[in-house]
Write a protein that binds this DNA or RNA. Sequence first.
DNA 1: CCCTGATTCGC
DNA 2: GCGAATCAGG
Length: 164
Amino acid sequence: MDLLKKLWGEGLSASQIAAELGGITRNAVIGKVHRLGLSGRAKTQAPASKPRRKNGGGQGAGSRPVQSQPQSRGATALKLDVEAIPQAKQEVEPVAELVPMAERATILTLTERTCKWPIGDPGSEDFYFCGRHSEPGVPYCPYHCRIAYQPVNDRRRDRKSARG
DNA sequence: CCCTGATTCGC
DNA sequence: GCGAATCAGG
């Protein structure tokens, strides 16, 4: 079965699907979705009267000088090990997590550049992802990067010293 | 700025 | 048929 069709049906965005499938761009996903005739989703643009190519009479799309752009588009697969994240979190002592509602992310809104640090109990309604900006390809925001990549021993030492 | 889908068009 | 480039909207 076409995973693409499935995911699209699930309501995932094109970029999310592209990341999920890996190796393809969101353009490819959209293009395919269109060809499959699945495009009609929660249409954001009802009026189909949107003349593209403000260029004029040229071939707007196909004739751009693609030269210094071999494949460094958005083709990077997300490949986020979401399942591994909660486990890593267990090693972290209760951090005072507090992400503004506006910045929070759900599994559906994570992208290459959103922090995927899980907050709250997975499965609960209070569960969400940090969602703050991270460098493209980097799973966490700077703040959570420090936590995530900090040696476990360091964290434990930190805690032990508090006991006495 | 970042993201979204839509469209066009060379391959 | 595929997908990159481009566009347009949020």
